[in-house]
């Protein structure tokens, strides 16, 4: 089962980093539902690194940044980040017997536009500017947000409404993977929400424009959520080990 997954992972992501991860997983992971904190950490590290990579590509390759050209920078970030996040989380998909890796990844990709639509609607309802010149920015921003919030859940749970309800209805996420998905997602949303606060102020800074500070907030919140979920995974792991010892 595990080997099968990892083989597929290898096929689809021929990446050195993934190999490293494979090792970690092999070492630590024994049963299906249990995810060691190391794996959580790596997953988050990679997604964080790829966000940074996207920014770096934009900055180095096209010499643009979030302030000078938010739309294209965001495009670069989400285009690079999305596949990685989808693939990473597809490794943790539910009901492995029925779902192949490819299917999970496909679901993740499919969910991107849907999530982007929801995020964009939310942003507009909360006051994102609607004139035409902002549409591209909103579009790219919502895809990034979708990658943070929707794609992982879609890749892992598919369309199981129960699971979705469990993690986004805040009804007691049970497993580590639930925390791994919902904490960064909540972090990103709350961070973006908080990031909107400086926008109306009269500091006349260029980053007060939509969606720059909101993106900063979302990324910061995402990182906080990642750290939080790693901490949760860590604590749970410790407890489990103690239990084992006690037994």
């Amino acid at each position: 089962m595990r080997v099968n997954t990892i083989d597929k992972l290898k096929q689809s992501v021929p990446n050195k980093t993934e190999k490293k991860k494979k090792k970690t997983k092999k070492e630590k992971e024994e049963d299906d539902s249990h995810i060691p904190p190391g794996a959580v950490f790596l997953v988050h590290l990679y997604s964080g690194l790829f966000v940074a990579l996207g920014y770096w590509v934009a900055y180095r390759g096209y010499s643009i940044n979030l302030i000078s050209d938010p739309a294209n920078t965001l495009l670069s970030i989400w285009v690079i980040t999305c596949p990685v996040i989808v693939c990473l989380y597809s490794c943790f998909r539910h009901e492995r017997e029925n779902n192949s890796f490819r299917r999970a990844a496909f679901r993740g990709i499919i969910s991107l536009p849907a999530g982007a639509l929801m995020n964009a609607c939310g942003a507009i309802v909360l006051g994102a500017p609607t004139p035409v010149e902002y549409l591209e920015k909103t579009f790219n921003w919502s895809f990034l947000m979708s990658a943070f919030t929707f794609a992982p859940a879609a890749a892992v749970y598919g369309s199981s409404s129960n699971d979705w309800h469990r993690i986004y209805g805040w009804k007691q996420p049970k497993e580590t993977i639930d925390f791994m998905i919902c904490l960064p997602a909540y972090g990103a949303v709350i961070g973006a929400w908080l990031g909107a606060w400086p926008m109306p102020l009269d500091w006349e800074r260029p980053w007060q424009e939509w969606p720059i500070c909101v993106t900063y907030g979302a990324i910061a919140g995402y990182v906080v959520g990642c750290v939080g979920s790693w901490a949760v995974a860590f604590v749970r792991d410790m407890r489990e080990k103690e239990k084992e010892k006690a037994e």
Partner: peptide
């Protein structure tokens, strides 16, 4: 003061 000015937000 700027928040008072932009209270509607």
């Amino acid at each position: 003061s700027s928040m008072v000015e932009e209270e509607h937000y």
